[in-house]
Design a protein around this nucleic acid. Structure first.
Lengths: 159, 159
DNA sequence: TATTGTTATACTCTATAACTATA
DNA sequence: TATAGTTATAGAGTATAACAATA
């Protein structure tokens, strides 16, 4: 049996709801992201794929022959960060680095059949996970959330 | 002058808007968070304070005598992760670890006057930054976003 | 036995800078 | 000179496991 609240517990109060932080978009974004990311990891754990790698595979399957530089730009990360991910995906047999006639600097990323299948499975897992995770939210709220998140993502300070 | 789009550019197409990823809440959350976090860092950079440390200071100022365990629970992180943050805040003279009569295991965190002032300044910077960053969004959209993010944060898979 | 604060450690994600081979 | 891919490296942020002191 847990102890009843001590004097200190009462002093401190747990109404974090009224904290300054709760009014900040950044703080709420972070907390929501942490929750969703944890569930993502649990859901796609059986596919043994991180969010980053899932994203890279997703774009490679949907945009075959994409280059690493293009992929990095789409994902919003640096080129150098992609190398290990592509190594991993290639090691799993999910894609191939293919030479591009006309520009020998470039390596086009081509999904394999195994890669397409693995992606379809992972995507289904991710979608099922989100459906369950957000089952307490009506569809129009999810739509609104997506719309507002895109608006935030493209926000830039005026200068 | 940049080269006109090559054949490959046309093949790949840049309509990432229609990608599977764009329909996932998790992906959009991550991207929005990255944008906002970058702006936060820029804005609070002059206060030389990370988001984590800002949060810890915020809760310490608003809930004086909070313990590290309580703080960790409120922030959603492990106790061990707080030690370095509290060290930093104490090193800056923003708070003190105070003995608690009645339980010598506990160290209550007490904000100093300097800590309260530094927090007020940092909070003002953060709020000004968000106001500018979201100046393209009407107030009711921000409210809606905050409400939905809290709903997402408290989502749990049914089991 | 359980809890608080702490240390040590390791892992993930990411950026920066520099290199190479091409262009 | 500039770009694509790569390597090396470093720095956040975080978790896990264990420990000492205390309850």
């Amino acid at each position: 049996m847990p102890k009843p609240a001590s004097k200190r517990d009462q002093d401190v109060e747990l109404d974090a709801e009224s904290s300054d932080l709760e009014r900040l978009v950044g703080y709420n974004l972070k907390r929501a992201y942490v929750t969703v990311h944890a569930e993502f990891t649990r859901a796609v754990g059986k596919d043994d794929m991180s969010g980053r790698v899932f994203s890279a595979l997703s774009l490679t399957v949907q945009f075959p022959n994409i280059t690493q530089s293009e992929l990095a730009r789409m994902m919003g990360i640096e080129r150098s960060g992609l190398v290990a991910m592509v190594d991993e995906l290639e090691g799993n047999g999910f894609l191939k680095r293919a030479a591009v006639p006309g520009d020998r600097r470039v390596q086009a990323l081509v999904p394999t059949e195994a890669g397409k299948k693995a992606y379809a499975i992972a995507l289904a897992d991710v979608e099922a996970n989100e459906k369950e995770l957000f089952s307490h939210m009506p569809k129009d709220e999810i739509e609104t959330l997506l719309r507002l998140l895109k608006k935030v993502r493209h926000a830039r300070t005026s200068e």
